[in-house]
Computed example of a mutant assay.
Amino acid sequence: MVERLARNIAALPDGVIAAAERAIVLEDLAEGLRRENDAWTGQFVRPAAMELIREGLARGAQTSAGERDLGGLLRKVAG
Rank of each mutant, 00 (worst) to 15 (best):
R54I: 08
V25M: 05
E36Q: 12
D38W: 02
A20R: 07
G32V: 03
E51W: 04
Q62H: 13
A61M: 14
G42L: 03
L29W: 05
D28S: 06
L26R: 02
A20M: 08
R59D: 04
P47D: 07
V45P: 00
E51N: 07
Q43K: 09
I17K: 02
A20H: 09
P13L: 10
D38C: 02
D14E: 15
V25C: 09
A58C: 05
E31I: 07
P13E: 06
A61T: 12
E21W: 03
T63P: 01
L12F: 14
E55V: 11
E55L: 15
W40H: 15
I24T: 06
A19F: 04
R46Y: 02
D38S: 09
A58D: 13
D14Q: 14
R54S: 14
R59G: 00
V25P: 05
R34Q: 06
G15E: 02
E51I: 11
A19H: 13
P13K: 11
E55T: 13
E36T: 13
A61C: 13
R35K: 09
V25R: 14
T63M: 01
E55D: 15
R35G: 06
P47S: 09
D38E: 14
Q43F: 07
A49C: 15
L33N: 00
I24W: 03
G56M: 09
T63Q: 00
F44M: 07
I53F: 07
L29S: 12
L33M: 03
P13T: 06
E31K: 13
E27W: 01
A39D: 05
L52K: 08
G15R: 07
A20Y: 06
R54E: 12
A61P: 12
A19V: 05
F44L: 12
A58Y: 06
T63W: 00
L57I: 10
I24S: 01
L26K: 02
